[in-house]
Design a protein around this nucleic acid. Structure first.
Length: 845
RNA sequence: GCGGGCGUGAUGGAAUGGUAGACAUAUCGGACUUAAAAUCCGAAGGGCUGACGCCCGUGUGGGUUCGAGUCCCACCGCCCGCACCA
């Protein structure tokens, strides 16, 4: 008997697809378009199981959509700029460009055996000058529309990578890539004006119905909208005012001090005359302002000696303090402290002996605040004391709204919405990135490079033997003449954050060879991405930046209207995990072992390993399974089938050797079954055709539902079930042939090679990829009889098989006659009988 | 602290408010085999019972409902995100 040989089958069908050029995407007027995209990979050099899972999910969707009559775009590219290439150049020599393109070639050749339905003719890498040149054109257009600007800024300096990090890229005070403790430095940097769009980016989240609620919420929290008011405080020395921003103006009665940021203009003005203030401010400047450091730091302040008049109570004067916890770049850089209703302010007040005064109490409880601030939920009703706006027993939220109105009416303040989102700093002091296309001229200042001179191509002749940016020490590249006046000038040597590269690649895929960033006709046809699939780790940065870019590209005419939200549907898939095998060396330090070196919990020499529960596959923990090895021993279809089978796609899936083995066995079984059916005698007798075909239609229905709703694991369970039914069927050849061909079609999105092989083996016409998706026959989904569970008081006590169309009254009669019910009734009458047609009968006794 | 998610057999996990545990792994039994592997068939939540059956069971405690894994409230545990944000 022939056996299932995936290596031979898979190579054959991949060639057949190539020959028929089936995955090439062309605009078409007579089919609806469908754009499916997986987050493109960084070319590290090796594909891993996470890639396999990500691309397989996209492939299932793409192939399913093809067979349901859609014109599908399913491209692939490389997020190819970034530090690992430079790190490799520093560590092992060579050039980032060579390293990157070699890796791309390796990964492409590892990816191709998966049999993905990708239109490879659209492939590009973000480090191709053809791509980053268009990105430079975008930058110049953004510059013209003032969507990008330069400012002096305190930046997060990563001393290891010698580069600036965005706030968002600082994690626990450490660089998100290097893990080095981040320092502060002041540099002139380029920024995208994403904060201008904060409100819109937040509001538009509500329309993203097909995004996970979790991701929308994370973005909402990141943007961080808060409604408050800017209040003017007049200095008692007559030297002007201090503006404070507050979200709790209703607590103004309890204000007992003002705190300003160390870099607030008022603080800076006092520095010259007051050495003790200068010393404090200096100390604050040295302080790390990263989130983690700020959290750990003690809340400190110093009295400036200034006072301001309370805006509501003329006779009250408030001292002005400098606080190390006040941030200059949020709000106005000044706040009023209300110790009674804010824990931080209360701690500060107790430390420096400032007054604590309640603005409200909880109803019926007039205990003054002690060491714990009174901060009830904003929806809770509180009793205000002698409130200036005339309110008494209301919720905090109502009080805030009323107080803002009151301040505005009196002309003492202006209601304002603040966002936590800051502008996106994109300058990187690094070689392997997209050069920022501007020139610095002593006469003309910052001059944009002329578009006809794009791309500004990275020079190849650079070395990495000294830290810092090689572009800074490359005179023939750096020194140019000013595009405006022609005098000697200097190129900008900073390059762009790699998040820029990934913020518009999805648009470029619609016309990857266009000599403008996009082609509007192609973009209008293919955009938006109908289904985007990727990891939850990109929930904030990448997706938010892409949403900003889509808007900015619309403003600059590079995308048509309607593409502001470029991803119609988003799916965030879980990771592939594996157990970790660990032993300890003689010093007790952990030593990790690869899964292939462990059999039955033991190493080859018999040493027992400690098994640590499943975690994300990582090189350092050695819990990695190489997809190439799996493909070599079982084939791509097995790898694809397994990563989809065990867990819901949004959750992590644990890779197990036995699971992969089982997937392979199942596919072999299906293949053998096909072989057996093909060899059947077409004229032979058989029975149960109808049962088989009914099961088949039920399977069509269930699998279609599963694929449509990302329930791949459930769809696979149904396919297992139907395979078991088919393999036991005694039906005639025609019915069995129909069943196996339909099974192949239903499996085709997941195991496309095996499906093609079965299709051909059974004499199917053309390629299975061109065959229309099977449609379940409604009539075959209904059966003549139905078995209803009979419950007594909600507990299952028996069952009853009745004609499917029997009416309720008769079902009730039949149910009451069943043995389980008569026994429970014991001669009495039922209190109530619930009959849910086709579902259940419940008798209440 | 705030926000979100999750909690079901030995394990991964099924289950539009309607038969809890589909499907798979691991386990056990049987067939085939000299034997093993492979393959095929079958069993299997816990407890009581000779058996028919009965009781208990989806983190804990309540509630809504004829009926709750599913909805509501409180709590416990785990995971994730965010945070001197005024």
């Amino acid at each position: 008997m022939a056996t299932y040989t995936p290596s031979e089958i898979e190579a054959r069908w991949q060639q057949a697809w190539d020959k028929a050029d089936v995955f090439k995407a062309r605009r078409s007027a007579d089919k609806p378009k469908y754009y499916v995209l997986e987050m493109f990979p960084y070319p590290s050099g090796r594909i891993h199981m996470g890639h396999v899972r990500n691309y397989t999910m996209g492939d299932v969707i793409a192939r399913y959509k093809m067979s349901t009559g859609h014109n599908v775009l399913h491209p692939m590219g490389w997020d190819a700029f970034g530090m690992p290439a430079e790190n490799a150049a520093m560590a092992i020599g060579g050039h980032p460009k060579t390293w990157t393109y070699d890796n791309i070639a390796d990964m492409r050749s590892q990816m191709k055996p998966l049999g993905l339905s990708i239109d490879w003719s659209r492939e590009f890498a973000t480090c191709d000058p053809e791509y980053y040149g268009q990105q430079q054109a975008l930058f110049l257009d953004f510059l013209e529309k003032r969507l990008v600007y330069r400012k002096n800024a305190q930046v997060n300096w990563d001393p290891v990578d010698m580069t600036v990090l965005a706030n968002e890229q600082v994690i626990d005070g450490k660089g998100w890539r290097s893990g080095a403790e981040v320092e502060r430095r002041e540099l002139t940097q380029w920024f995208f004006k994403i904060s201008d769009m904060a409100g819109e980016l937040k509001d538009a989240l509500a329309g993203l119905d097909n995004w996970p609620a979790k991701v929308r919420l994370m973005q909402e929290n990141w943007i961080g909208e808060s409604r408050g008011i800017e209040i003017t405080f007049h200095r008692t020395d007559g030297n002007g005012t201090i503006q404070c921003y507050s979200t709790r103006p209703d607590t103004m009665r309890g204000a007992s001090f003002i705190a300003i940021a160390p870099d607030h203009p008022v603080a800076k003005a006092l520095e010259a005359d007051k050495p003790e203030l200068a010393a404090f401010i200096d100390e604050c400047r040295k302080m790390d302002t990263t989130e983690a450091a700020m959290e750990k730091a003690e809340k400190k302040g110093i009295d400036t000696g200034l006072t301001v008049r309370h805006p509501v109570y003329d006779d009250v004067e408030l001292p002005v303090w400098i606080g190390n916890f006040v941030l200059m770049d949020y709000g106005t850089g000044a706040v009023f402290g209300c110790p009674a209703h804010d824990q931080r302010d209360l701690d500060f007040a107790r430390k420096y002996d400032l007054p604590v005064r309640n603005a409200f109490f909880m109803p019926g409880d007039t205990t003054e605040v002690g060491d714990e601030a009174l901060v009830p939920a904003k929806t809770e009703k509180v009793s205000f004391i002698d409130h200036f706006a005339g309110i008494a027993d209301v919720t905090s939220q109502e009080a805030i709204d009323a107080t803002i109105d009151w301040f505005e009416a009196k002309g003492l303040g202006v209601g304002q919405t603040q966002y936590r989102l800051r502008d996106w700093g994109l300058s990187r002091q690094r070689y392997w990135g997209c050069p920022i296309p501007v020139v610095h001229c002593d006469t003309c200042g910052v001059v944009p490079e002329k578009k006809e001179n794009l791309p500004v191509v990275l020079p190849d002749d650079v070395t990495f033997d000294v830290p810092g940016n090689p572009l800074d020490r490359h005179p023939t590249w750096r020194d140019v003449s000013c595009p405006s006046c022609g005098k000697p000038a200097r190129r900008e040597t900073d390059t762009m954050d790699t998040f820029v590269d990934s913020s518009w690649y999805f648009a470029r895929f619609t016309a990857p060879r266009a000599d403008t960033p996009t082609d509007l006709d192609d973009a209008a046809y293919w955009m938006n991405v109908d289904q985007y699939i990727g990891g939850i780790e990109h929930a904030i940065l990448h997706l938010l930046y892409s949403r900003f870019f889509a808007r900015a590209m619309r403003i600059t005419g590079h995308l048509p209207q309607g593409c502001e939200e470029p991803f119609d549907a988003l799916f965030t898939q879980g990771m592939v995990t594996h157990e970790i095998y660990q032993t300890r060396d003689d010093k007790g330090r952990p030593v990790y072992h690869l899964p292939e070196d462990v059999t039955d919990g033991k190493l080859a020499d018999g040493t027992a390993v400690e098994i640590i529960p499943s975690a994300k596959m990582s090189k350092s923990k050695k819990n990695v399974v190489d997809p190439l090895g799996i493909i070599a021993s079982y084939g791509a279809d097995t790898a694809r089938w397994f990563v989809l089978s065990d867990s819901p796609p949004e959750r992590d899936v644990e890779w197990t050797a036995s699971g992969a083995e089982a997937a392979y066995k199942h596919l072999s079984r299906v293949w053998t079954l096909c072989d057996r059916i093909a060899a059947m005698d077409a004229g032979a007798k058989g029975e149960g055709d109808d049962d088989l075909l009914r099961a088949m239609h039920a399977c069509i229905h269930d699998v279609t539902m599963g694929v449509e709703s990302f329930g791949f694991n459930a769809a696979i369970a149904k396919l297992y079930g139907f395979t078991a039914v088919l393999s036991k069927s005694k039906a005639r050849h025609a019915a069995q042939r129909e069943a196996i061909m339909t099974l192949a079609q239903l499996m085709a999105p997941m195991t496309p090679h095996l499906a093609e092989d079965i299709w051909a083996h059974q004499g199917g016409e053309g390629l299975i990829i061109h065959a229309p998706w099977p449609v379940a026959d409604e009539a075959m989904l209904k059966s003549d009889t139905v078995t209803l569970p009979i419950q007594v008081n909600g507990k299952r006590r028996g069952e009853l098989t009745v004609p499917a169309d029997m009416d309720k009254a008769e079902v009730e009669k039949a149910a009451l006659a069943t043995e389980a019910v008569t026994r429970a009734l014991d001669g009495g009458q039922p209190k109530k009988v619930i009959v849910v047609p086709g579902r259940i009968v419940n008798v209440v006794v």
